[in-house]
Amino acid sequence: MTERPPTVVVNDLHVTYRVKVPGRGRRTTREVPALRGVDLVAREGESIGVVGRNGSGKSTLLRSIAGLQTPTRGRVFADGHPSLLSVNAALIGDLPGARNIVLGGLALGLTPRQVAAKYDEIAEFAGLGDFLQHPMRTYSSGMQARLRFAIATAVPQRVLLVDEALATGDAEFRERGEERIAALRAQAGTVFLVSHTLAEIERSCDRCVWIEGGRVRLDGPASTVLGAYREVTKSGRLGRLGRPGRGRAQGGGSA
């Protein structure tokens, strides 16, 4: 029996944020568990949708797989250096998009020559025209997403993590983004896609993971998981935000 080789192995992953809460008199530090024991294996050629309500731990999971978040407990193993595309990182806002392309490429480990060779392709994919000369902080969130997507996928990685990065883009950009995702999968890469647009996951993913209260609630074929997820969200059985699952916002202690 053959099974495709794994590209990402998530083992008993716990991530707890320490949040300083200003209070009357003294400041307290609360521990907020974002992930509470996630096990996951992703394999070559898989495209995995990740769903769950706000604050369920989806983004933390992706940041952990990218190696940008240190686990409180457990470990993540991956093939190569997974690249993360998220909506909320602006690279260097003071500098023009064009400089961000060069710096982003160099930061990812390209040589100046490689960056020069890839520059046109990245600029073309971002499709920002004259805006490339404007400081990146003046971009709309969709424009920022385009540029970051173009930079991050310029260095092909085996594992691509997309955290709502396509959501702010227009139809044309989404289509091109989905094309890149498909191309990566064809080369035996693995894609994780966090999205609240379930149709997008339906289109691009064969498998889906449902995260709830920092744990995997369901993991299986996209159609099955999405079906169950839709049913529960519709019936409102998830309860109020901020009190999800088993005590996500509990903890306490003072600092």
Partner: peptide, 25 residues
């Protein structure tokens, strides 16, 4: 088809090691 998370392979670090996956970060 729909497998709860509990049924992932037992020895995850071992699986990672067999395929040469490195710890990230």
């Amino acid at each position: 088809g729909t497998v709860p998370a509990a049924s992932v392979p037992p020895d995850l670090p071992g699986l990672a090691a067999r395929y040469g996956l490195a710890p990230v970060g």
